[in-house]
């Protein structure tokens, strides 16, 4: 059960926001510091640890070979799951994913799927028989608000750094070679969560702010200036606020995308360096 939030706290935050200020002295359209650590988990085909202010999210990509869905024999399979691990918040309880965990996973999934970030058609080994199953597992480790954005950043980064072995058919069997290649990523979607208190909108609400928000909405842009997913999480928005939120998220999403690209670039270089060293040592 969620704790009772004293109205005084809400009034305090609302008054600050009215003046364009926030409890952690950010601007209304300013994100908290984003720290992305790609390839955090060695056993995962791709992974990323994302710290968004005090929120900590770890995303791992695992790949398996399996059957495609009957209605999409020419496409690989994408499965997204989110775990609100009890160690992340006193509000999280052990047990099967609740509606919040399922909503989180489905919104992250929608952003990636609908933007066609991962080209599932290129994840096929033999049509109708063998395809790559891509599992995105989101682990929330510390909850300080805005799980949607942190998780999407994590999932996209992990996909960008993930590698899969080459696979082909031989005598009706799948053969896997120890030659690794990146996943067929075509877009870098970025999600922007916006909160409303009274008439004011703000990006990236932290936990304290989320507790007193009147409304929360998450908007995902692909990188071609197209909206690819929207989810109003709770509350109401006027039509003007909705339009403002779309504009704001378009702007912020390109900033987040830059950050992801920075993080991944470093990773690719590191990877190249390591490779270089190995070759030298030989």
């Amino acid at each position: 059960m969620s704790e009772v939030v004293p109205p005084l706290q809400k009034n305090y935050i609302a008054n600050l926001v009215k003046k364009g200020k926030r409890i952690d002295s950010r601007k209304l359209d300013e994100y908290r510091e984003i720290k992305i650590t790609p390839s955090f988990i060695g056993n995962a085909e791709g992974s990323a640890l994302v710290e968004l202010g005090g929120t900590k999210v770890l995303v791992g990509i695992k790949l398996e070979i399996g059957e495609p869905f009957k209605d999409t024999p020419d496409k690989g399979v994408l499965i997204t799951n989110a775990e609100l691990v009890p160690l992340a918040s006193p509000e999280f309880e052990p047990g099967p994913p609740d509606e919040n965990a399922i909503e989180l996973a489905r919104v992250v999934d929608r952003g990636i799927r609908e933007s066609e970030a991962l080209n599932l058609e290129k994840m096929v080994i033999k049509e109708g028989e063998h395809v790559w199953l891509t599992f995105i597992d989101i682990h929330i480790l510390d909850h300080d608000g805005n799980l949607f954005d942190a998780s999407t950043i994590g999932a996209v980064t992990a996909l960008l750094t993930a590698k899969k072995p080459k696979a082909y058919m031989e005598n009706g069997e799948v053969k896997i070679v120890d030659e690794w290649e990146p996943l067929p990523m075509e877009w870098i979607p970025a999600s922007v969560t916006i909160g409303r208190i009274n008439e004011k909108l703000m990006v990236d609400p932290n936990f304290e702010e989320e507790n007193v928000l009147d409304a929360k909405i998450c908007i995902v842009f692909d990188d071609g200036n197209k909206i690819c997913a929207i989810q109003k999480v709770f509350g109401v928005l006027s039509i003007e606020q909705m339009k403002e939120a779309v504009k704001l998220s378009e702007k912020k999403s390109s900033e987040i995308r830059q950050m992801i690209m920075e993080a991944v670039k470093g990773e690719v270089e590191k990877h190249e360096k390591r490779k270089g060293k190995k070759q030298k040592n030989r």
């Binding site: 692909d222 197209k226 997913a229 989810q231 109003k232 006027s238």
Partner: peptide, 18 residues
């Protein structure tokens, strides 16, 4: 009051189309 209580989207749309 023309207040939006549910909005979701999947697919691709430009802002004008939205």
């Amino acid at each position: 009051k023309k207040e939006i209580t549910l909005i979701q989207m999947d697919g691709k749309m430009s802002i004008d189309e939205f």
